[in-house]
């Protein structure tokens, strides 16, 4: 007896999910499900690939072809899936540690190839599954169980990293800004090429508690106050943008040919399509 959308897109018999009370991942997973549904895709042709960590448990709850892989390797597995059958819509759900630490190499190279995969990074700024160690997106100076005196690492800006590596669509959304997130993920899925969306989650259990950020509500209020749509921001003077985080579509490049399209041309040239 859940909502129609949940019934249609999730494996209801697997719910409730394992995420903590107030975890932003549940909101982001709903955004992804809604976006897939809005795109009108045939569920038989949708593949969700994930790695390891809190984020990556999403795959098991989504009612599509789902591949829960090894830590960091989701995008490499996804590359094989997409190459093997380009008719499939391949969506990667991964986390900040999974995607940008142990899987960082796969991330930059998937961006570079411009293969038509939509990657959504559920960024909770911490390693949640292992109990709160600092990740590549834990802000400089903040705490984790492995950074008891404050994190001296500088954190990644994931969309910027992806854009620099060649991703042809990048964006950022938050757990708070759900309607905008759905639209952004929809656009990313429709984009024919590699797209990367950073989904700013909230982790009240580890990141929040460790850094005195309050509960989920407080953390989402922070998202509301701190994030500003990139289109709006482009019309504002720099002093108004200080300390702000841009959300929405951040970059798009339609000039590059998609990877599997180029490979199909090679097959044609070699006569392998006969």
């Amino acid at each position: 007896m859940p909502s129609k959308l949940i019934e249609k897109t999730l494996r209801v018999n697997r719910l409730p999910h394992i995420w903590c009370p107030g975890c932003g991942h549940g909101i982001l997973m709903r955004d992804v499900a809604q976006a897939i549904d809005n795109c009108g895709l045939d569920p038989d042709k949708v593949v969700i690939v994930s790695g390891i960590g809190c984020s990556s448990r999403a795959a098991g709850y989504m009612n599509y072809n789902t591949l829960h892989t090894t830590h960091g390797r989701a995008l490499a597995f996804a590359t094989g899936v997409k190459m093997a059958n380009p008719d499939l819509t391949v969506i990667c759900i991964t986390g900040d540690g999974d995607c940008t630490a142990i899987g960082g190499n796969h991330l930059i190279h998937a961006c570079r190839r411009n293969i038509d995969i939509t990657s959504i990074v559920f960024n909770n700024n911490i390693y949640g599954m292992t109990g709160g160690q600092y990740s590549p997106t834990t802000p400089h100076g903040e705490k984790g169980t492995t950074a008891p005196y404050g994190n001296i690492d500088y954190n990644f800006d994931i969309p910027k990293l992806a854009e620099a590596a060649g991703a042809t669509f990048t964006g950022r959304c938050t757990a708070y800004h759900a309607p905008q997130a759905i639209k952004l993920i929809e656009d990313a899925i429709k984009h024919h090429g590699f797209s990367l969306i950073e989904g700013m989650s909230v982790c009240p259990t580890y990141y929040g508690r460790k850094n005195k950020k309050g509960d989920s509500v407080a953390m989402m209020n922070w998202q509301k106050d701190t994030c500003i749509d990139a289109k709006v921001a482009s019309k504002l003077p720099p002093e108004k943008l200080e300390g702000k985080i841009l959300i929405g579509e951040l970059s798009r490049d339609e000039s590059k040919e998609e990877y599997t399209d180029m490979y199909m041309k090679i097959i044609e040239k070699c006569g392998g399509n006969k």
Binding site: V47, V49, L67, T69, T70, G72, R73, A76, F77, A78, T79, G80, V81, K82, M83, A84, N85, L88, N105, H106, I108, H109
Partner: peptide, 19 residues
Amino acid sequence: MEDEIGGIAAALGASVAGL
């Protein structure tokens, strides 16, 4: 692929997709 791990991972992905 970008490394050895990516090589086997992509091959496994392709196998799941039927090749």
